[in-house]
Design a protein around this nucleic acid. Structure first.
Length: 360
DNA sequence: GAAACGTGGTG
DNA sequence: TCACCAAGTTT
């Protein structure tokens, strides 16, 4: 037990990565980094982390921001409920915790967006609490270290690994220990082709001993992604501005802006579906003129083919007035709003005079 | 417990 | 082109 800790910590002192959030002990910064790192690679999170901390250096500045501002910084990071929860949690810190993070894992876990893992990570790294931080890396390392054949994705499997991790966490510098486990998982004890010859734990690893390191942990079968179709309407006013609407904050891509339109029903034609969805979203009856572009994208739980059409307001239709969730925007203004990846893929096909980018 | 929830890198 | 998956949480 203490041998494992010792080997791990020694390896970590020599091999730990120089990451922006490891250069601070500011609990706010640690918290932001941990939220960004949920289901997200370190290299992906780094530039977002820098921009976020520059724009929102503390909980007060974050709490005072609008959701549009927060989402714009989060644009392209994905899992946008994280940004919404971060924002909401900052407001709670302002009103109930004196503008700071609460220190106990229990109080941390009570904040939106903070679950078991993040409460443990922030609790141990920022506040020195001896609690485990069990993420996918740690589950994989422990499943191999103790040659656990049961699924580590099931409820019982997870609690078993959490109990193991809890026994391993030292009283002194639990944050370094937790991070050493995660770093080992991401750099040595990788999902495929683990680098066992480099591993400080190889000689005490049960999976390596049994030659099972490539077969553990057992992964549950994944479902193939269904394919959906959606349509988008490109509507211009007399000044060449585009009609854009904001998605509901709680839903899919919540709070991001989009072109009017939506998902096609099974068997529904594209122009027909477009007229229906635009009317549902904006109340505006439109005529469909011509197809502008079609883009494909993959989300966490379905594939999407999004087709954009140039549209025109039908005579007699009431043009929607600008509001918090609906507005006419120039190309420049749209670039200051947060859009999803798929919607941004449509931008180069918009009918508007603008500087053409040098490379495709 | 299962499903929802994004995006980009990799073999 | 495609499946897999990366510092999970919420409903």
């Amino acid at each position: 037990m203490s041998l494992i800790r010792q080997k791990l910590l020694r390896w970590y002192r020599k091999n730990q990565r120089d990451l922006p959030w490891r250069r601070t002990r500011d609990p706010y910064a640690v918290w932001v980094s941990e939220i960004m790192l949920q289901q997200t690679r370190v290299e992906t999170a780094i530039p977002f982390y820098r921009r976020f901390l520059e724009r929102f250096p503390d909980a007060s500045s974050l709490a005072a921001a609008s959701s549009d501002e927060v989402l714009k910084v989060w644009e392209n990071l994905g899992y946008y409920s994280r940004a919404r929860n971060l924002h909401e949690a900052a407001k709670i810190m302002e009103s109930r915790h004196g503008g700071r993070l609460p220190e106990t894992p229990e109080d941390l876990a009570a904040l939106p967006g903070i679950g078991d893992y993040t409460a443990g990570a922030v609790g141990s790294i920022a506040f020195g609490r001896p609690v485990p931080a069990v993420d996918g890396n740690v589950r994989r390392v422990l499943a191999r270290l103790y040659a656990i054949g049961d699924s580590v994705e099931s409820g019982p499997g997870k609690s078993r690994l959490r109990a193991l991790a809890a026994e391993l966490v030292p009283q002194e510098d639990p944050g370094a220990f937790n991070q050493s486990l995660m770093d080992l998982g991401s750099r040595v004890c990788t999902p495929t082709l683990p680098r066992c010859p480099e591993c400080p734990l190889a000689n005490v690893c049960e999976a390596f001993h049994q030659g099972l390191q490539e077969r553990l942990p057992v992964a549950s079968p994944k479902k193939s992604l269904p394919s959906e179709s959606a349509i988008a309407a490109v509507l211009l006013d007399r000044d060449g501005r585009f009609l854009v609407v904001r998605r509901p904050l709680q839903g899919f891509l919540g709070g991001l802006w989009k072109f009017p339109g939506g998902f096609l029903r099974p068997g529904e034609g594209l122009p027909e579906g477009l007229r229906r969805t635009v009317r549902e979203e904006t109340g505006l009856p439109v005529s469909v003129l011509m197809e502008l572009a079609s883009v494909n994208t993959v989300y966490s739980h379905f594939r999407l083919r999004l087709t954009a059409f140039r549209c025109r307001k039908r005579s007699g239709g009431i043009v929607p007035s600008a509001g918090p969730d609906c507005r006419w925007a120039t190309f420049e203004e749209m670039n200051r709003l947060a859009f999803s990846k798929a919607d941004r893929l449509l931008f180069p096909f918009l009918p508007v005079c603008r500087p053409r980018s040098p490379a495709g």
